[in-house]
Computed example of a mutant assay.
Amino acid sequence: MWTKILTMIIVINLIDIGISKPASGTSEENRQLPEKKNSSIRLKLDKPGVKYGDHYLCRAERIEERRYLTEIAPVKSWGANHKSSLHACPRPTVEEHGAVWPCGEMSASLFDRDHEHYAVCHPEYDGLVLYEFGDEQGDEVGTPLKLPQGVSFEVGEGTKYPYLVVKVYYGNSMYYFSGGMTVYGDDDLPGITYLYQTEPTRYEAGVMLLINDGVLRPNSDMPENENVLDVVCDPTSMHRHTSVIAFAYRVHAHSRGVLISGFRLRGSVNQEWTLIGSRSPQEEQRYYPISNPLQIRPDDCLIARCQYDNPTNETIMLASRREREMCRFHIMYYMERPVAHANETSEERFWENFCVAFSPIRITDMSDYLGDIPKWVEEVSLKKVN
């Protein structure tokens, strides 16, 4: 079985970590700060004679207690990986203890072709991307994600996300041959490290995801060669019943992606457009802070635009495979954790956390619903392509 081809270890260290004083005026100011602990999930590949380069691999850890994650960062092995991510899953694709599975573009030389494209989380469940670091050159360590004071991701036993899954991309095969190449120790294994506490924070973090799963047409088929896919999520397509504060965003596309932008649209008469964030998916695909954190209300409309450059004559399906394309705009938010509902997860008391569009209709074709699109919206979401 392919699950026996690879083995992996989880290294967990518990140490005392000091944290800064909460902002003045919070309810936490006059009480003792909770202890923070450090944990890491790392990969170890030790099958002799197997080439591990150019592969995504995953390993899940079931968290047997409630943990509140406040900081996430990559653990980089020298020359080993240049992409890693941490996911929260209701259920991973593979639950077998100690199993490692292919969770991206896999080569049939390493795994049976029937098992090439396993997902991170089980396809029947929606997971969250808590952190991702990507450096195409493999030179950088990665920017840690530090949540605002008093904010955390709730994971573990009794929550919607009892599993954490680490995903690592092995981009340089020369380091993974047994015999003749250097074998690294446990302290130099790639993976993810995170800070957590076992006492709830005042605010709970979550992620909303705007997706277009349609098709990418050639540039020549698009008006003025402006090749875009739009996502419009009105209150009926993403149900929610409380307001949140959005404080970070992340974009994701593959090689043809040029620019991805997100907006909040408020009001049905005097409509107000606000930019959430805009960035090229060819830059480091991590969460970036929103310049001015903004409130998202239940009656707000959320909009994303993905711009591409497809100079070929081919129509490309949107899917997770590398040769396909993707259109994803992530919004990281926080909300107050209701004391009366301490045993509920955020999604049970909040809203659906994703919205999917399949239509190629542009926002400029939806004036009956969206009204007149401000000129600056078009300008900020379109980049000149040579």
Score class of each variant (00 low, 15 high):
Pro48Ser: 13
Glu314Gly: 03
Pro223Leu: 08
Asp54Leu: 09
Pro123Gly: 05
Pro200Met: 11
Tyr176Ser: 15
Glu226Ala: 03
Pro338Leu: 07
Gly138Pro: 13
Val141Lys: 10
Pro338Gly: 10
Gln285Glu: 14
Asp368Arg: 12
Ile15Val: 13
Leu43Tyr: 06
Arg62Lys: 14
Gly158Trp: 04
Thr7Ala: 13
Tyr175Gly: 12
Ala108Asp: 11
Ser243Asp: 11
Met174Glu: 10
Leu216Phe: 00
Asn313Tyr: 02
Gln137Ile: 13
Asn13Gly: 04
Tyr163Arg: 06
Phe358Trp: 06
Val251Tyr: 01
Ile276Pro: 01
Pro223Phe: 04
Glu29Ser: 12
Gln32Glu: 14
Gln271Asp: 02
Lys375Ala: 14
Tyr161Cys: 06
Ala23Glu: 06
Trp101His: 03
Tyr334Arg: 04
Tyr194Val: 08
Tyr175Leu: 09
Ala80Thr: 07
Thr70Gln: 01
Cys355Glu: 01
Ser268Met: 12
Arg250Val: 02
Pro311Gly: 07
Gly79Met: 10
Ile5Leu: 15
Asn13Gln: 11
Pro102Gln: 14
Pro289Trp: 02
Ile296His: 02
Pro22Lys: 09
Cys327Gln: 07
Asp221Glu: 14
Arg324Glu: 08
Ser109Val: 10
Ala246Val: 07
Phe358Pro: 01
Pro200Leu: 12
Leu189Ser: 15
His82Tyr: 10
Ala108Trp: 03
Glu379Thr: 11
Leu318Val: 10
Asp230Thr: 10
Ala253Met: 00
Ile211His: 04
Tyr163Ile: 06
Ile10Val: 15
Ile245Ser: 04
Met106Trp: 01
Asp186Val: 15
Val244Trp: 00
Ile245Glu: 02
Asp46Tyr: 01
Met208Tyr: 12
Ser152Tyr: 00
Lys83Ile: 10
Glu314Asp: 13
Arg250Ser: 07
Asn219Ile: 07
Gly104Ala: 09
Arg321Val: 08
Ser237Trp: 02
Tyr308Met: 00
Asn30Asp: 14
Glu336Ser: 11
Gly206Asp: 10
Asp186Ala: 10
Ser261Cys: 14
Arg286Gln: 09
Ala119Asp: 11
Pro298Ala: 07
Ser84Pro: 00
His117Phe: 14
Ala119Thr: 15
